[in-house]
Nucleic acid binder design. Structure first.
Length: 262
DNA sequence: ATGCCCCCGTCCCGGGGA
C-alpha cells in the first residue's frame, strides 16, 4: 500500500492536480494539508465521481486536513487531543486496512520567539503524547504531513539563511526528534540517510527554478509500519505544473503481508 | 534591506503562509 502526504495549498485551487495525481497511481492513500476549505465547500463530488473515499476536517479559509483513499476509511478522529480550546483544523486520524494514518498540518511558528512559536511547541508536545498513545495498539501507524520542521541542515538549501527561523530552531528540531526517538522512523531518512530531498519551494524569487528548497513534509512510521517499508520517494512532478502548490508529494510503500509465513 | 508569489474572503486589501 502506497501512502503519500501533500500540502496542496487549497483543495479547490488544486483539485485537478489532486485528482490527476491520485488517478495516475501516485498513492493508494493520500494525506492532504492546507485544504483551506470548510467541509461545506470541499469538492466532495470530484472524489465521489472517481469512487474514492474521503474524510475531511475543514476550516474556513485557513488550515484544514483530509484523507483520500482507494479503500474504505474507518474510525475517523478529527483534532489533536490535549487542548479543547484549540480550534485550528490541523489533525485528522483514520484507519485504513488495519493501518492508522494521520494527516498533520503542524503550525509554522513564525515569528520566533513569540506566541505563535509557543503555540507550535505546545502543539508538538501534544503530538508527541498522541504519537505515544498510538503505539499501544501495535498496528502500523503513519504520521504524515507538513511538519514545518527542517530536521537537519542537509534538508535546507541555505542553512545560514534560516538560522533563528521557527522551522530550524533547536526547540522545533528537538520536539521532532523526540517523536522519532519515541519509536517513529523518518521513512525518507531510513532508506536515504544522506541524500538531499526537498518537498517545498517558495513561490517567490525563482526558488523552484533555482532548487532553493527545504524538506518539511515527512512520513513517520511506527515500528509495525517501519517493518513493512520497502520504498520511499519525493515526486517533484506536481511542483512543476501550471499553478502548482508550493509543496510536492512525499510517498512511501508499505509491503502487504498476509500472514506470518508471508 | 526589502520584497518577490499565492490563496482566501464577499474582497480590490489584509492576513497568512514558510
Amino acid at each position: 500500500m502506497r501512502i503519500a502526504s501533500w500540502n496542496v495549498n487549497s483543495a479547490k485551487a488544486r483539485i485537478d492536480h489532486i485528482r490527476d495525481w491520485f488517478a495516475a497511481g501516485g498513492a493508494d492513500v493520500l494525506l492532504l494539508q492546507e485544504i483551506k476549505s470548510q467541509n461545506e465547500s470541499f469538492p466532495f463530488d470530484v472524489f465521489a465521481e472517481m469512487g474514492w473515499h474521503v474524510a475531511v476536517h475543514g476550516q474556513k479559509s485557513y488550515n484544514g486536513v483530509a484523507i483520500v483513499s482507494r479503500y474504505p476509511i474507518e474510525n475517523v478522529m478529527c483534532g489533536l487531543p490535549g487542548d479543547p480550546s484549540d480550534e485550528q483544523a490541523r489533525y485528522i486520524e483514520a484507519t485504513i486496512k488495519n493501518t492508522r494514518v494521520v494527516s498533520i498540518y503542524l503550525p509554522n511558528g513564525n515569528p520566533a520567539p513569540g506566541p505563535k512559536f509557543d503555540y507550535k511547541l505546545a502543539w508538538m508536545k501534544r503530538l508527541y503524547l498522541r504519537s505515544q498513545a498510538l503505539l499501544a495498539d501495535e498496528i502500523p501507524v503513519v504520521l504524515g504531513g507538513d511538519f514545518n520542521v527542517i530536521p537537519q541542515d542537509i534538508d535546507c538549501y541555505d542553512p545560514p539563511g534560516w538560522v533563528g527561523d521557527a522551522l530550524t530552531r533547536s526547540e522545533s528540531r528537538s520536539a521532532f526528534f523526540k517523536i522519532c526517538y519515541g519509536g517513529y522512523t523518518d521513512a525518507l531518512r531510513a532508506l536515504n540517510p544522506s541524500g538531499v530531498y526537498y518537498t517545498y519551494w517558495d513561490y517567490q524569487a525563482g526558488a523552484w527554478q533555482r532548487d532553493n528548497g527545504i524538506r518539511i513534509d515527512h512520513l513517520l512510521l511506527s515500528p509495525e509500519a517501519g517493518d513493512k517499508l520497502v520504498a520511499v520517494g519525493v515526486d517533484r512532478g506536481p511542483r512543476g505544473l501550471e499553478k502548482p502548490s508550493d509543496h510536492t508529494p512525499i510517498w512511501c510503500e508499505l509491503a502487504v503481508r498476509r500472514s506470518r509465513a508471508n
